[in-house]
């Protein structure tokens, strides 16, 4: 890519796509007034150093003692089951790709550009199927499985919540 002083939106999205196809776990690129940071995991520090020490009284139990104290009768997991409000029911069975982060889901790298993938496309674990924007930061969403993307469960430009089903990947069935 040429490096004009002010990149266009398309430049940025091309960059995102390009980096995403690479073997990077995370990447930070700055050019002109624009800085782009990408991470494959949803938990990259986004705003400037998150020097937030959780308040004592509300600190998450990271030391494990609290976890150890949970009786098996009270798993937290069932609580998470209905996490998503009224998801569109997938018409086909397969792996459901869920939103790794709250934000706005885009199927294309930029408005008007062709979508990353169309239903019916063959995808691999690292295939980008969309982007979720949270507070102006773009987070690629990957298929996470090998197979055929049979359908999208949310519209382009949709506000999505953490854990919301986005698409269905049907595993390659041997004929």
């Amino acid at each position: 890519m040429s490096t004009p002083s002010t990149p266009s939106w398309q430049d940025v999205l091309d960059l995102v796509t390009q980096l995403d196809d690479g073997a990077y776990e995370s990447a930070a690129v700055e050019f002109g007034d624009v800085s782009v940071r990408l991470s494959r995991s949803a938990d990259m520090p986004v705003t400037s150093p998150m020097a937030m020490t959780p308040p004592q009284s509300l600190a998450p139990s990271t030391n494990g003692t609290a976890h150890a104290a949970v009786p098996p009768a009270a798993p937290a997991v069932p609580e998470t089951a209905p996490a998503v409000p009224a998801p569109a029911q997938p018409a086909s069975t397969g792996t459901v790709v869920t939103a790794p982060i709250i934000g706005v889901f885009y199927r294309s790298p930029s408005p008007g550009a062709p979508p990353f993938v169309e239903p019916g496309a063959t995808v691999g674990p690292h295939t980008t199927i969309g982007i979720i924007e949270v507070m102006k930061l773009m987070n690629p969403v990957t298929a996470g499985a090998v197979g055929t993307l049979t359908e999208f469960l949310v519209a382009d430009n949709a506000q999505v919540e953490f854990g919301q089903p986005l698409a269905v990947i049907a595993e390659e069935a041997s004929p």
Partner: peptide
């Protein structure tokens, strides 16, 4: 209405200002 902002860990949900701001916009 309930908006799910992240997983159980507070560090990936309740402690992330950008997720709260995004939820406020939604």
């Amino acid at each position: 209405r309930v908006i799910v902002i992240g997983p159980a860990q507070a560090g990936l949900s309740y402690l992330r200002p950008e997720y709260i701001a995004e939820a406020a916009v939604h």
